[in-house]
C-alpha cells in the first residue's frame, strides 16, 4: 500500500468510528498531535496537584482533609495514566517530564493562578474540574483507543471532584458572612481563568480543524466554552453569587448565556509563561525532581545490583 492509500484507509476507519490502537498505522502528524495533547494533559494533572495540595494541611475539618488529599492523589493517578497513554505512541516519561521542567511543554494555564483561600478548594472543584469534564467527555470519544479509555476512567473521578466542589460552594454561599465573602471572592478570581481553559477562539486555534477531521476532537473550543457557561452560570446565580462579567446575559433566540469578551492579552501572557504563578509552579516541580534525584539513583542502583541478577 502506498502512503496515500494508508492514509485513506486510516481516515476511512475513523469515519466508520473505529478506534486506532497503538500498533496500527497512523500518519506522523496524528501521532505528534496526540503526544502533544496527551502529555500536556498529563502535565496539567501533575501541576494541578499544587494549588490544591497547598491547602491539605489547612483543611478545616477531618472529612475535608481526607477528601482533599484523596482528590490530589486522584490527580496524580490521572497524570500517571495519561503518561502511560502517551508512552503507547513512543514518547518516554523522561522526555515528557524534561519538556515540562524546561518549559517546552505546556499545561493548563488555569493552574498558574494562585489559590488564596479555603473557598478556592470548592471553586476549583466545581469550575476547574467541571470545565475539565466537558473537555474530557468529548475526548472520551476520541479516535485513539488508549486516550479515549483513559478519559472514560478519569471522568468518573472528576465527576466526583466536581460534586464535592459544588457541595462546598453551596455551603459557603449559604454560610456565615465571612464564608459568603470568601466564596464570592473565589468566584471573582476563578471565573475568567476557567473560561480561558477551553483555549483560544476557534479562529485562533490552528490545530482544531485537522483534529476534528481525525476524530481527536469532536467539538471546537468555543462550542465547549459555550456549553460550560450555559451549564454553570445559572447555577452560580441561583446561589446568589455574582459572576464577574457585567456583559453576561441570557439570549433567548439562541438559548445561550452570552459572556463578555475574554481578556486575550492576559490569556496569551499566561500561556507564554508570564502568569501570576508560572514560575512558582515550575519551580515546585523542579524542586521535587531535583530533590528526588538521589532517590531515583538509589532505586536504579538497587535494581541493578539485586534485581538484575537471577
Amino acid at each position: 500500500m502506498s502512503e496515500q492509500e494508508k492514509l485513506q484507509e486510516f481516515e476511512a476507519r475513523i469515519a466508520r468510528g473505529e478506534k486506532i490502537e497503538p500498533g496500527d498505522w497512523m500518519p506522523e502528524e496524528y501521532r505528534k498531535q496526540l503526544i502533544r495533547m496527551i502529555s500536556q494533559h498529563a502535565h496539567s494533572e501533575i501541576v494541578g496537584m499544587l494549588p490544591e495540595g497547598a491547602w491539605i494541611t489547612r483543611a478545616p475539618t477531618l472529612r475535608r482533609k481526607i477528601t482533599l488529599l484523596a482528590k490530589v492523589q486522584d490527580e496524580g493517578g490521572h497524570g500517571q495514566y495519561l503518561y502511560h497513554a502517551a508512552e503507547t505512541l513512543g514518547a518516554t516519561r523522561a522526555e515528557m517530564i524534561d519538556a515540562l521542567l524546561t518549559g517546552k511543554a505546556k499545561y493548563a494555564s488555569v493552574f498558574n493562578y494562585p489559590s488564596l483561600t479555603w473557598a478556592d478548594m470548592g471553586m476549583i472543584g466545581w469550575l476547574v474540574d467541571g470545565a475539565a469534564i466537558m473537555n474530557q467527555t468529548m475526548l472520551a470519544h476520541c479516535s485513539y483507543g488508549p486516550y479515549s479509555r483513559a478519559m472514560v476512567r478519569i471522568c468518573t473521578e472528576e465527576t466526583f471532584h466536581k460534586k464535592q466542589g459544588m457541595e462546598q460552594v453551596i455551603k459557603y454561599a449559604r454560610g456565615t458572612p465571612p464564608q459568603k465573602a470568601m466564596v464570592q471572592d473565589a468566584l471573582n478570581r476563578w471565573w475568567w481563568p476557567v473560561l480561558m481553559m477551553f483555549g483560544p477562539h476557534d479562529s485562533n486555534s490552528p490545530n482544531s480543524a485537522q483534529l476534528i477531521r481525525w476524530g481527536v476532537k469532536t467539538k471546537t473550543n468555543d462550542e465547549l466554552r459555550q456549553e460550560f457557561i450555559n451549564k454553570t452560570a445559572p447555577d452560580l446565580q441561583l446561589l446568589g453569587l455574582k459572576i464577574p462579567d457585567p456583559a453576561l446575559h441570557y439570549d433567548e433566540a439562541s438559548d445561550n448565556w452570552i459572556s463578555g469578551e475574554i481578556d486575550w492579552d492576559e490569556f496569551w501572557r499566561v500561556v507564554k509563561g508570564d502568569g501570576p504563578c508560572n514560575k512558582e509552579r515550575l519551580a515546585a516541580r523542579r524542586d521535587a525532581h531535583e530533590n528526588g534525584a538521589w532517590v531515583r539513583e538509589a532505586l536504579n542502583a538497587y535494581a541493578e545490583r539485586f534485581e538484575g541478577e537471577g
Binding site: I46, G53, Q73, A288, N291, R296
Partner: peptide
C-alpha cells in the same frame, strides 16, 4: 502530595 521524588509515590 505533589512533591514526592517519583510520581508513583505521590500516589
Amino acid at each position: 502530595a505533589g512533591h514526592a521524588p517519583i510520581l508513583e509515590e505521590d500516589i
